[in-house]
Amino acid sequence: MQVGDKYQYEFEVSRETYDGFLGIFNDRNPLHTDKSFANSKGFKDVVMHGNILNGFVSYFVGELLPTKDVMIIQQEIKFHSPVFLEDTLSFSATQSAIFESVNAVEFKFEFINKNDNRKVAKGKLLIGLI
């Protein structure tokens, strides 16, 4: 794993993902569950939970990196635009630093909505190599 290494993947916010998140975490705020409420706040439909994206980040760390000997130490994410059901997100992550002293690597990542090419979220990860 070297600085500059880039990873790309596509995630769909499927009905299964949305229902699963609702079922597990039970965040039924009307912004996420009531279309008329979401409309009244200026959104075209119910807005997907931002933390679904953190689940996708977890998949990236646990499944897409070339080693399984990893553990998330620190994670930051900023949300820029809403995501709706069945949107497809283009995820990219670039290794931005390596810290040999503590066996850790840093990634910067972003999600782009493929429907309109808008940046949905971006963030930073510090991953320990265990």
Binding site: I73, Q74, A97, F99, S101, V102, A104, E106, L126, G128
Partner: peptide, 13 residues
């Protein structure tokens, strides 16, 4: 131990 990693990373930066 986990905060130690973040401390060293922050110091290096």
């Amino acid at each position: 131990s986990l905060n130690h990693i973040q401390l060293v990373v922050s110091i290096e930066k």
